[in-house]
């Protein structure tokens, strides 16, 4: 109980910053920094004042927010699944590892935004572009980390499997994947941030809907509060994705932290 109270007390800085922001921007009448109350009001009006039947989402939100989220989730999850499968498969063969590692390292080093112009000439504007961009951005770090993780599975784990005649399928699902999972998660953590970047960027450049597109429109119309609502939404999205991911990781990798502590 006491720890909860003290934890909340240590959040004092958030209200302090908000109040300071409100007061100073009102006093200075800053054009590009509307007070938080203004942003909040606009946030409600623009995105969340819809009918209860639509979970209070406005048409605007349904039109811009949902497609962004859908593409983000589908693109990220699909790319991760394929990249993990491919990485683990390659990682179990020393030859394939050696052959493909330099190529994967290279693709991992290409800043993925650079390819958006070329993707655009192939896919045109819209969902296919966003998906391609997200998939390309996410794949390489996840592939590289899965490959590394599967490659350096402790030899004794595998020998134990051999001694006790553990079937190939179980060896993969119960031993190799868990042994590689700390590395795989390191790749996934990076990929969440990359997916967001690629989502926003591809909506800036080649889209007619989505949060990024809406944001750029607001910017060009000098509609500063609306632009800020998009910043806030993207911030919340980043925060929620990150927190959900960390929680999931903590759950899956409990053993890893426990085993490391006692080493």
């Amino acid at each position: 109980m006491k720890t909860i109270v003290s934890r909340i007390a240590w959040l004092w800085i958030l209200p302090v910053v908000l109040v300071a922001w409100e007061v100073s921007t009102r006093a200075a009448q800053a054009v590009y920094f509307p007070p938080p109350s203004v942003i909040l009001a606009r946030l409600h009006e623009l995105w969340f004042s819809g009918p209860a039947a639509h979970v209070f989402l406005t048409d605007e939100a349904a039109h811009h927010l949902l497609p962004s989220l859908g593409r983000l989730v589908v693109g990220w999850a699909g790319a991760c699944l394929v990249a993990i499968a491919a990485g683990v498969a390659l990682g179990r063969s020393a030859v394939l590892c050696d052959v493909f590692s330099p190529l994967i390292h290279f693709f991992r080093s290409v800043p993925p935004p650079l390819l958006i112009p070329i993707f655009m000439t192939m896919t045109g504007i819209g969902t296919p572009l966003q998906l391609t961009a997200i998939v390309f951005g996410v794949s390489w770090p996840v592939l590289l980390n899965s490959l590394d993780g599967a490659r350096y599975v402790d030899r004794q784990y595998l020998e134990t499997c051999e001694v006790f005649g553990i079937s190939r399928f179980r060896r993969l699902t119960r031993v190799i994947l868990p042994a590689a999972s700390p590395k795989i998660f390191a790749g996934l953590r990076i990929s969440v941030a990359l997916a967001l970047i690629m989502m926003i960027l591809s909506e800036f450049i080649g889209s007619t809907e989505g949060i990024g597109y809406r944001m750029l429109v607001a910017q060009s119309e000098l509609d500063v509060p609306t632009m800020w609502t998009a910043i806030v939404l993207l911030g919340i999205l980043g925060f929620v994705l990150n927190a959900a991911f960390l929680r999931f990781e903590r759950h899956v990798l409990t053993w890893h932290r426990g085993a490391r502590k006692t080493d």
Partner: peptide, 14 residues
């Protein structure tokens, strides 16, 4: 069956 010396690497921590 084999019992290895290094139990920490032979038992699966997960």
């Amino acid at each position: 069956a084999i019992v290895f010396q290094d139990y920490s690497r032979s038992l699966f921590p997960w």
